[in-house]
């Protein structure tokens, strides 16, 4: 195993670890809105690490750029879908404490 392959394996495993943590949060957090935190943030970092690991093994610059594009598009999808699901959860009457936070 070359140093590059070793580095790629480290990134891939670290990425998988974040996916695992995100799934753990999905299972353990008490309500829909909190679960979204686990999914969006942990999976975002997990995918980035997986993409870096794969980019290290990529044969060309184009493949590496493709992985970057995959990450950016997944990022966009994650934040938009989290927003839509959160809005629906609130509209459906999710019970969350509202606190004073610098707004009316």
């Amino acid at each position: 195993m070359s140093a590059l392959e070793l580095a790629a394996a480290v990134f891939l495993l670290a990425g998988a670890g974040f996916y695992l943590a995100g799934t753990l949060g999905l299972l353990r957090f008490p309500d829909a809105l909190s679960r979204l935190h686990a999914l969006t943030k942990a999976d975002n970092v997990g995918l980035l690490l997986v993409c870096i690991g794969l980019a290290l093994l990529a044969g060309s610059l184009r493949q590496a750029a493709l992985l970057l594009l995959v990450w950016l598009l997944a990022l966009l999808a994650a934040t938009v879908s989290a927003h839509v699901i959160a809005r629906r959860a609130l509209a459906d009457g999710a019970e969350v404490e509202v606190r004073d936070g610098g707004g009316p």
Binding site: A21, R28, F29, K41, A42, N44, V45, E97
Partner: peptide, 22 residues
């Protein structure tokens, strides 16, 4: 953000404080 939420999900006492602000 990823590390923070991973840590909170893994802790036995689940240290999260869910609330809304405007």
């Amino acid at each position: 953000g990823g590390i923070d939420v991973a840590w909170r999900a893994a802790r036995r006492d689940l240290p999260i404080d869910p609330h809304l602000i405007r």
